[in-house]
Amino acid sequence: MNGIPYAREYKVTLCHVCSYVCPEDAHECPRCDSPVHRRKPNSLTRTWAFLIAGLIFYIPANLLPVMYTTMLGSSSENTIMSGVIEFAEGGSWDIAILIFIASVVVPCIKFLVLGLMLVTCQRRSTWAMRERSRLYRFIELIGYWSMLDVLVVALVAALVQFRGLSTIEPRLGILFFGLVVVMTMLAAMTFDPRLIWDAEVEDVR
């Protein structure tokens, strides 16, 4: 082994919260009392669980209507995709693309990327580790923005309440969509990116 030695060679580990270097067998950080682990515990399993839950929620989130609009007596219920199509057909390409990216592309990318991470980590693959780790940072970054849809619906539903003229109400789909976002964020949180690099070393654990 050349270069900088690994922490475990010194039998130390890093506190997740305050980055205090703790002895390897410490269970709590001596400085901030938070639990100390060498890696996030059960990271792969938990990530898998959240990812699968997210995938399951993603189905009703797309099938159920997210928004109910009443405009001068004409009422309609829109799912995410029908809203996108409606905007696209109405000529508002920009808005259609924005919504499409925020509510379809981003969650799908997250599912794919996390799935990829999990599979490669489990197989201890050493393929493109640097790129994978960059991907992970990207996932964490765009994670917040997937809530865009939920925020739009919440805002619009709160603002557009002109009884009789036009009303917008949220529908069940948006709850599932919110759950999808929460699940993917949890999945991204529970995933320990250091696992990517563990494949470098033969004897992890």
């Binding site: 399993t45 669980a49 959240f50 399951i56 759950l179």
Partner: peptide
């Protein structure tokens, strides 16, 4: 792991 309850609940819903 108990975390599997999350996807199970999701699936049940």
């Amino acid at each position: 792991s108990l975390v599997w309850l999350v996807p199970i609940v999701a699936a049940l819903i």
